[in-house]
């Protein structure tokens, strides 16, 4: 298994490098001069030219590429054009915010999704099954943007139950630690819900289908025939196999952990990676765009690898050696 992991990690390096190289060229080919955003057009062009020289934008593209590769190999991600700060520091500031939001959303997604899937599978054809199925479809088809705004207007503005935006209240640093934690938790409820609820509906549908397939198999019938309780039959025998497709989903969801969620972050003013990436693209902030791509790329590869490892753990028939 260890050898398999090392092999996968090694094979991921050229893949990642190829992805970043592709991004490097594609963003430079895109129209739009970064300098037009940082120096007003009526300032003597000499000033913009100097800034271009300083940032290395006047170098020939191959030279820019060589310099970038050299920087990457030494762990130097560069300086953000738009934020005037070291890219690695910007990422270090943003990644924890994103993780706080996405980890909870992922938990919410799988916890609620699996629970709904199991419930509806066990009560197949009942009123509960139909209600949950229709509601899941309804929630799944709802745009995040709209749902977010509706919750802000309903739960926050009309009912005044939860805060509408931000990670915490202004001047939260003057709160005691428990108060601060409570404040952040309150701010998390709506964005976590919006981010997780649609995926939970989808996870629930997958789980239901998967469990229904498993419960009709011979070994489950055997378990029941042995006189095991229904809880043990489902919990110990059926669920373990039914979870295998869900693990694929989990693996595929991992990139989202650090990729962030642009829409939810924008609506709820949550300072995460998604918004950072989009802002960087609009600002033609080349170093920051590459760094955000690097983070997403690493997560996609790590997610797939983790899914493969989890397969082996859940399904003893799978061996990678």
């Amino acid at each position: 298994m260890i050898r398999y992991i090392i092999k996968r990690v090694m094979s991921a390096i050229p893949l990642l490098f190829g992805l970043l190289t592709f991004t490097f060229f594609i963003i430079r080919l895109a129209p739009g001069d970064p300098m037009s955003l940082y120096i007003q057009a009526d300032v003597d062009p000499m000033y913009a030219e100097n800034l271009r020289n300083t940032l290395g934008l006047n170098d020939a593209l191959p030279l820019q590429y060589v310099k970038w590769v050299k920087g990457m190999l030494t762990g130097e991600l560069g300086m953000s054009f738009s934020k005037h700060a070291d890219v690695s520091r910007i990422l270090a500031d943003t990644i924890p915010n994103t993780l706080l939001l996405t980890v909870f959303a992922l938990f919410f997604n799988f916890l609620i999704g699996i629970a709904l899937g199991v419930t509806t599978a066990l009560k197949r054809g009942s009123a509960t099954d139909h209600i949950v199925n229709v509601s899941s479809l309804f929630v799944y088809s709802m745009p995040e943007f709209w749902l977010g705004l509706m919750l802000i207007l309903g739960v926050s503005l009309q009912l005044d139950l939860l805060p509408a935006s931000g990670m915490h209240s202004p001047l939260a640093k003057y709160l005691s630690f428990p108060e601060y934690v409570w404040d952040v938790l309150q701010h998390m409820v709506l964005p976590v819900f919006v981010l997780g609820v649609a995926s939970a509906a989808a996870t629930g549908r997958y789980m239901r289908g998967s469990l229904l397939e498993v419960v009709n198999q011979d070994y489950v019938r055997t378990a029941r025939a042995k006189g095991l309780s229904e809880f043990l039959v489902i919990g110990k025998h059926a669920l373990r196999n039914a979870l295998i497709p869900i693990i694929t989903l989990l693996g595929l969801s991992l990139p989202f952990l650090l990729g962030g969620a642009v829409i939810v972050e924008t609506v709820f003013a949550w300072p995460g990676m998604g918004k950072l990436t989009v802002d960087a693209i609009f600002a033609r902030d080349y170093p920051l765009i590459i760094a955000c791509t690097l983070v997403s790329g690493v997560m996609v590869i790590a997610g797939n690898l983790l899914a493969d490892i989890l397969y082996a753990i859940v399904d003893p028939r799978i061996r990678y050696d």
């Binding site: 705004l149 802000i152 207007l153 503005l157 935006s165 202004p170 924008t266 709820f268 003013a269």
Partner: peptide, 13 residues
């Protein structure tokens, strides 16, 4: 305190 809120509807709320 200056708070960064991009979405106009959220700001208005």
């Amino acid at each position: 305190v200056f708070r960064i809120i991009t979405e106009p509807t959220t700001r208005l709320t």
